[in-house]
Amino acid sequence: MLSRPNRITRGADYKAVVRRGARCAGAHTVTYVRASDDDHAVRFGFIVSKQVGSAVTRNTVRRRLKALCLRELPGVRAGSDIVIRALPSAATADFAVLHAEVARCLARRAA
C-alpha cells in the first residue's frame, strides 16, 4: 500500500494535476503527470468513477492501480504528482495489461 506521503488527498491537488499536468491516454486508463521543482515525495491519486462498475469493482480497480504504482514508485522522479483515471474497460482488463499501460505512461511522462 502507498504510504501517506505518497498519496494525493486534497481535491485542489487533484484538480491542479488534471488541469495542468501532461496527459497520457491508454485503452484502460488516463494518466496525468505534473512535475514540480519541489523535492517532495512522489504522490499518486486515483479517480475511479461509478461508470467503472459497482463499489466492489471500483475498489478492486483502485487496489490494482495502487499496487501497480507501488511497483513503479522507485523509477518516478521526485516531486511528481500523478493522477490515474480508470476508464470503464479497466474493470475487465488483465493485471499485466494494466501494468504495461501504467508503466508506459509513467516512463514517458514522469521518468
Rank of each mutant, 00 (worst) to 15 (best):
M1R: 14
L2W: 05
S3D: 14
S3V: 10
R4T: 14
R4V: 14
P5G: 06
P5C: 10
N6E: 08
R7P: 09
R7D: 09
I8N: 04
R10I: 07
G11L: 11
A12C: 09
Y14S: 13
K15I: 09
V17R: 02
V18H: 12
R19L: 10
R20I: 13
A22Y: 15
A27Y: 05
T31P: 08
V33G: 09
A35M: 14
D37P: 06
D38N: 09
H40M: 13
R43Y: 05
G45S: 02
G45D: 02
F46M: 06
I47S: 07
V48C: 03
V48T: 00
Q51V: 10
V52R: 04
S54I: 07
A55M: 08
V56Q: 06
V56Y: 02
R58F: 03
N59E: 04
T60Y: 11
R62T: 01
R64D: 00
R64P: 03
R64F: 04
L65A: 02
L65K: 02
L68I: 06
L68Y: 04
L70G: 15
L70K: 13
R71C: 09
R71D: 15
E72I: 12
V76K: 08
R77M: 09
I82C: 08
I82K: 03
I82G: 05
V83G: 05
I84Q: 03
P88F: 03
P88H: 00
S89V: 01
A90L: 03
T92S: 13
T92I: 09
A93I: 03
F95E: 06
F95P: 02
A96C: 10
V97G: 00
L98G: 02
H99S: 15
A100K: 09
A100Y: 04
V102Q: 01
V102I: 12
A103W: 01
A103R: 05
C105F: 04
C105H: 10
C105P: 07
L106A: 05
A107S: 14
R108L: 12
R108S: 11
R109V: 10
